[in-house]
Amino acid sequence: MSPTPTVDLNCDMGESFGAWTLGNDAALMPFITSANVACGFHAGDPAVMKATVRAALQHSVAIGAHPGLPDLAGFGRRNMDISPEEAFDLTVYQLGALQAVVKAEGGQLHHLKPHGALYNMAATNAALATAIAEAVYQVQPELLLYGLASSELTRAGEKLGLRTAHEVFADRTYQANGTLTPRRQPDALITEARVAIAQVLRMVQSGLVRTQQGQDVAIRADTVCLHGDGAHALEFAQQLNQELRAAGVRLQAGAPATAQ
């Protein structure tokens, strides 16, 4: 009997700040299985963090810390020349902040996923990846570490003995080396829902993705990232959730793509 494909649907959340609102977190919660909550450096603030954690708990959505670079103006999407020690420190700081909020609300932290530029830098920079993985290991080693599939970050986590979730993206295009097409390029985003859903189904069911160079490359899809700040984010989340279930894919937080 062939295994039932299983995948996690994660979404970056809690990215409002003060008087500014971004995304539609409350409406998206029923259609995802894990939430990555901004910890105040690239977005989020104490009140937003608390509200997001409460909403996740109400919907039985797994909660993860989403640390970013200290760049509110750039939303954490601009590279910064940080050292491994700085990467360790900012990860510990932000993980600790969300860890406290989750505990105060009676929940349990499930994972950590870096945000934006920090995520992409750690995907290719082994020293930064190791620093982030060590921060998780020293603060709460039972957490899952979410990282770009088959990247330096997942390798660093696995080397330390952390559980990892190899992440793929519904609305991003890929390069031949398995990295995401940089956002500054015009072909970085997939804007048609049917194309994005077809890409996700193929990654989850066949372990393959078509790159911008026209090649199929192998990819491990434990968790799929949805972006909650798009104009049609809610409709897309609903549709992807329905299409995966209709295809016989089980949705579960942090689960491997080939779980029995």
Rank of each mutant, 00 (worst) to 15 (best):
R184F: 08
L234Q: 12
L244A: 10
A122S: 15
P67M: 05
A51G: 00
A247M: 06
R54T: 12
P70R: 08
L240D: 10
R155Y: 03
A35I: 05
A188Q: 02
D216Y: 15
H111D: 06
L118D: 01
A127P: 04
P30I: 06
T52K: 07
A35V: 06
S150Q: 15
Q252L: 13
T21A: 14
Q94D: 10
L180M: 03
P141T: 00
L240F: 08
A87Y: 07
L90A: 01
L226V: 01
A51C: 03
G106H: 11
L118S: 05
A135W: 08
R155L: 11
T164S: 02
E158L: 03
N177G: 04
A149E: 05
P46C: 10
F41V: 02
Q212Y: 00
V53S: 05
R220M: 03
L128N: 11
V136E: 13
I63Q: 04
L57E: 06
R210W: 07
G178N: 00
H66I: 09
L226W: 09
R163Q: 14
V53C: 05
Y119H: 10
A35S: 13
K50W: 00
A149R: 03
E243K: 14
W20N: 11
L234M: 06
D81M: 09
D171K: 06
L112I: 14
L144E: 01
T191D: 13
G44L: 10
S16V: 05
T179S: 11
L208A: 06
N241M: 01
Q199E: 06
I197R: 14
L201D: 02
Q199G: 07
T6K: 06
H59T: 03
A19L: 14
A97Y: 01
A247T: 08
E158F: 00
P84N: 08
A126S: 14
L28Q: 14
T164M: 03
E142L: 06
M203R: 04
T173Q: 13
T154Q: 03
P84G: 04
V204N: 12
D229S: 13
V37I: 15
H111Y: 05
L112G: 11
P30E: 03
Q99M: 14
H232C: 13
Q252D: 06
G96C: 05
T21P: 04
L128C: 09
P84A: 04
N24D: 15
Y119W: 10
G106W: 12
F88D: 11
N125Y: 03
L244I: 10
D229C: 12
A259D: 13
Y146G: 07
A156H: 03
Q239K: 15
A126P: 05
F169W: 03
V102Q: 01
V139H: 07
L28P: 09
V195R: 12
A188P: 07
